[in-house]
Design a protein around this nucleic acid. Structure first.
Lengths: 188, 188
DNA sequence: GGCAGATAGTGGTACGTCCGACTATAACGG
DNA sequence: CCGTTATAGTCGGACGTACCACTATCTGCC
């Protein structure tokens, strides 16, 4: 996971200065924000994968298990999993292939639609995801170092962005944020 | 790039409710923040790659070109590029292979160290990166929809996180932030 | 009823990332 | 000076993601 030794300076701040020096002052801030998100994701994913290694899981496979653990009867259509995790159907196929090979889920036909496939969490899968969730909570989520207000700012700004990108329908009835209503456009 | 139709509700907010229902209230916020970062990165990367498609570039290859365009003489050691972009050396090898095949960069030996290799931006590479930067500025960075205060919050929270993760040495001499000095620990 | 179009899932391919192993070279220490 | 250690870069493989094409099936409409 790129266990580099720390750099003397923040390369993103440096890039921002370059942007401003070129006269792209308007774009410099968002550029830094976008780059920061990219880099943070890389660090977080590497850390999650390292934590999940003892469980023989990757983060994306864990996400499938976690989703199933909250589903009715621990069962879900491939299609629905793909939609909720917001990944391409083939990614779900890939993940389920490996999870099934590990005995953590199994595929089941759907009686009402012979095209569709249900993914079902096995007992071993449930056990595994419970342990993995405990590990992730303790070793990742509780130690991100994000402060309360930072969490709030991150989730807020990013959920706005995701909604604008068509990720999900904007929360129509939220009167507490109605005052900043003018929906910022965003070409995705 | 997962051109899903929008979901009725935000799956991350849903996950957060699940977390809280299970009693993991402390971890729920950071979990939502981490997941939001993951998903935002996915959307941003897909969008960047789409914008760069006409240039026959991907975002990671663009990053290499952009880095070179700001370097002295448009020239940099592979090792240094790897360190500044914070990716594994093999990723740079991969990117440079493709950029070289496209005639946008070329490898040059280093006279003082026969192990090392310099990457040099070609004229075509410079032209390309200039066009690509214009496109990214106009179609991505200027249209993220992030507001001023959101950019500030994102960059601030994430640069703190990156610094804690050992990404780069914390900005030692910044008296304006000295008042919140107690360095939050973060196990990376 | 039957055909056109939509939908669920999969196989194959391309790309980016990482890791481990390896080569070649440099730097250090006795 | 020579052996040990560290460093720069590459190769091969594993994994996750996306896209395209394809099959099987369902749905809707005439």
């Amino acid at each position: 996971m790129a266990q580099h030794e720390p750099l003397p300076r923040d390369p993103i701040a440096e890039a921002r200065r370059n942007w401003e020096r070129e006269g792209w002052t308007e774009a410099a801030g968002p550029m830094a924000a976008v780059t920061s998100i990219m880099r943070a994701q890389q660090l977080l994913l590497a850390r999650a994968d390292r934590i999940l290694k003892p469980f023989h899981l990757t983060f994306s496979r864990y996400e499938v298990l976690a989703l199933l653990s909250f589903a009715r009867e621990h069962r879900m259509l491939m299609k629905k999993a793909s939609a909720l995790l917001q990944v391409h159907p083939t990614s779900i196929t890939n993940a389920v292939d490996r999870l099934e090979a590990a005995g953590l889920v199994r595929r089941e036909p759907v009686s009402t639609d012979r095209r569709a496939v249900n993914v079902v969490l096995t007992d071993r899968g449930l056990e595994t995801v419970e342990g993995a969730t405990r590990a992730l909570n303790e070793e990742l989520f509780l130690t991100t170092g994000f402060e309360e207000h930072e969490v709030k700012a991150l989730v807020g700004a990013l959920s706005g962005f995701r909604a604008r990108c068509g990720d999900f329908a904007p929360p129509a009835g939220r009167p507490d944020t109605a005052h900043e209503d003018p929906p910022r456009k965003s070409a995705c």
